[in-house]
Simulated scan of single mutants.
Amino acid sequence: MKTLNRSKTIIMTALLAAFSMSSANLALAEDKTDMRAADASTTADKKAWLDSRRMQDYGDAKNMLEQALAGATSVEQLRGLLQKEGYMITSINEQSNDDIEYEVVKGDHSFEVSADIDNAKLEDIEVANNVWRADETKRAMREADYKGGDLMYDEKQAGKYSDSKYLDSWGEEKEALEAALPVGKTVSDYQKMLQDKGYQITSINDVDDDNVEFEIVKGDHSFEVQLDRDASTKVVNEIDVSTNIWQSEETEKALGQE
């Protein structure tokens, strides 16, 4: 009788061990699936597109440019100060007797510079983020030796690339997207959710045991989605949907499709 009970105990122990190993293997398989998906679009320099890596420098540069432009009273003076600070004007988004708006580039930083005009005098000069960018702006950010050419204001294209045109709808979409992505799923679950909602995953910027970040595009809108997850179970416990300022080439191509 003791021998029989002992045999049962050994069998149950083996079954439990096998079950535990199967669960672990499932979690591992899930992780490997995520990694294979990432490998398809991730290169060694993909982390360069992470906004979180650049936002501090970007904010500092924005503040410095605002201070440098604060005293400008005319369009000519504004252009001169931009050149002095090393910025190239890559797009004229607005130009009238009432206001102006430029896109400017220096290195990998791009801003929108706008001002109201009253009696030919500049007022309320503002330096803002530049997310929806003209083709010339994208090229200047990619090519260090880009010289540009003579810029002409196209009234038919007025405001086409102005961030103000898109911000309201972008903010509403961001809130809706956050509400539609509950915590407690795996990365592959979120990938399917996004694809079902019409989003294209254009770049996987980072994959770690406890974090995955990728860029998504739908129409004129692009976001960065960051999923923080438990390193052992791979279950996501925090989701962040944010602005995508530094876009991968795949994201730029997707946004350029009509």
Rank of each mutant, 00 (worst) to 15 (best):
G148F: 01
A29H: 12
V127M: 02
T137N: 08
D118G: 04
R36I: 15
A176W: 10
S242C: 00
L177G: 01
D150Y: 07
K165S: 09
D57Y: 11
K47R: 12
A61S: 10
M193V: 03
D240R: 07
G184C: 07
K8P: 00
G198I: 04
I201C: 12
V131F: 09
W170H: 06
T42R: 12
A176D: 12
G171S: 14
D220T: 06
A115M: 10
Q191N: 10
G219D: 03
H109Q: 07
E112S: 07
M1K: 14
S248L: 01
K46H: 08
T186Y: 02
D98N: 09
G148I: 03
T137R: 09
W49F: 15
K218L: 05
E249I: 11
R6K: 12
V207L: 04
Y146L: 02
S222Q: 06
L65Q: 00
K165C: 05
A144T: 13
N63V: 12
E238N: 15
Y102M: 01
K174C: 04
V241L: 06
E85V: 04
S22E: 13
R133P: 00
M193K: 02
E101F: 08
E238T: 10
S203A: 08
D57V: 02
K197A: 12
A48S: 11
M12Y: 15
N25L: 15
A180N: 05
S164G: 14
L82A: 03
K8D: 10
D124L: 09
R79D: 04
Q200A: 15
A128T: 07
M55G: 00
S91A: 12
T33V: 14
S52F: 04
A115C: 12
G86S: 02
K165Q: 10
L255F: 03
R6T: 10
E30C: 11
D163M: 03
A158K: 10
A128E: 07
D240K: 09
A17E: 07
T233R: 02
S23P: 06
K62Y: 01
H109L: 05
E172S: 10
G159F: 03
T202I: 09
E215L: 08
E175Q: 10
Q157E: 12
T233M: 05
A68E: 07
N97R: 11
Q195P: 05
M141D: 02
S232N: 13
K160L: 13
V225H: 03
G184I: 07
S91V: 08
T9Y: 15
I11N: 04
E249N: 11
S20I: 15
A61D: 05
H109F: 11
K218E: 05
K253W: 08
T33A: 11
K165D: 05
N244F: 02
D163A: 04
K253R: 14
T13L: 15
D45C: 04
D154W: 04
A24H: 09
F19W: 14
A37N: 14
V105M: 01
T3R: 14
N119S: 11
V187S: 00
R54D: 02
E175M: 11
N5T: 09
S7K: 15
V236L: 06
K32T: 05
V241I: 07
T3M: 13
T9V: 13
I89L: 03
W246F: 05
I92A: 00
D39M: 14
E85H: 09
A29N: 12
M55L: 13
A14G: 15
V75I: 15
A128D: 09
D189Q: 00
A231H: 08
K121M: 14
N244G: 01
T243H: 09
D220N: 10
W49E: 04
L151A: 03
